[in-house]
Design a protein around this nucleic acid. Structure first.
Lengths: 158, 158
DNA sequence: TATTGTTATACTCTATAACTATA
DNA sequence: TATAGTTATAGAGTATAACAATA
């Protein structure tokens, strides 16, 4: 039964190690924290809500109208082949349109629709609410410090 | 050509937005930072090195000898079915052994081999070197602050 | 030659559900 | 009934390589 386990050899061994090595690594802590935030994001936005990467893409399209898929890929730090499914989903939902660019027929400018702008404003509010609620045990100062330190890590990127 | 792009409409639009909404979200910054650290981890440990989750599992097996797969799953926050491939790899490399536990024949205690302990010590040193190098633009104080803030996020977990 | 968007493909990580052998 | 380990399976997310159209 379960109560026996609390006193058996395996758990006694655990008690001998105060802090596992693992907890000393930034990478491990970063991942565990990221998983928590991401899964709360998905839970909050729900089945029919945006996945994080789709939300990110929509955000950039609304803020940078006429951005291209390749531009989006660069900003998001992923390969441009990965943008196809994301843009397909957003276009399929009627939130943006692929439009031709006069002067370069290779390129498709991504333009948010009115519906897309509205949907983004609502989703942004939902995401803000999710982070405010989930991270309510961090003060505004702590959040700002965290952002700044994460920014320092991001600044190491090649 | 590329130089034209710097003055076309798409990039002019970008200049109008100082800071994209995206950058205000903890989740987004957490993910970007995590991707950087994780990919440097993999690059540093190399083709035949441990993947992050395999390193994590080995670390816990070395520090908690006789831990079970289910125990590992709980500590790592993943489903126990996911441990099978990880433990298979570590056992296949001769770094741990699945051993029977007298008194409960359902359970397999995971015991690190001598080779496993050595391999872990070396990998741990490599991971520490990777983080020290990658995060050299953060002071020790900043790293400690970051850990503490990530710990606050982890503390929100159900 | 180089770039854009795209397709095909594969790999990693993870989850869910069900099975078996035990308890 | 419940738990440990396992299998089968599926779904994200991502990458690489190649292609057609265009520059």
């Amino acid at each position: 039964m379960a109560s026996v386990r609390k006193t058996d050899k395996r758990i006694e061994d655990e008690a001998l190690v105060e802090t596992p090595d693992l907890e000393e690594f930034i990478g491990y802590n970063l991942k565990r924290a990221y998983v928590i935030v991401q899964s709360d994001f998905r839970r909050t936005l729900g089945e029919d809500g945006f996945a994080p990467r789709v939300f990110s893409a929509l955000s950039l399209v609304v803020q940078y109208p006429n951005v291209t898929s390749s531009g989006l890929a660069r900003m998001l730090g992923i390969e441009r082949s990965g943008l196809v499914a994301i843009v397909d989903e957003l276009e399929g939902r009627g939130l943006l349109k692929r439009t031709n660019v006069p002067g370069d027929r290779r390129v498709q400018a991504l333009v948010p629709t009115a519906k897309g702008k509205t949907a983004y404003a609502e989703a942004r509010a939902a995401v803000r609410a999710h982070e405010d609620r989930l991270l309510s045990n961090l003060s505004d100062d702590e959040k700002a410090t965290l952002m700044s330190l994460l920014g320092k890590i991001r600044a190491t990127e090649a």
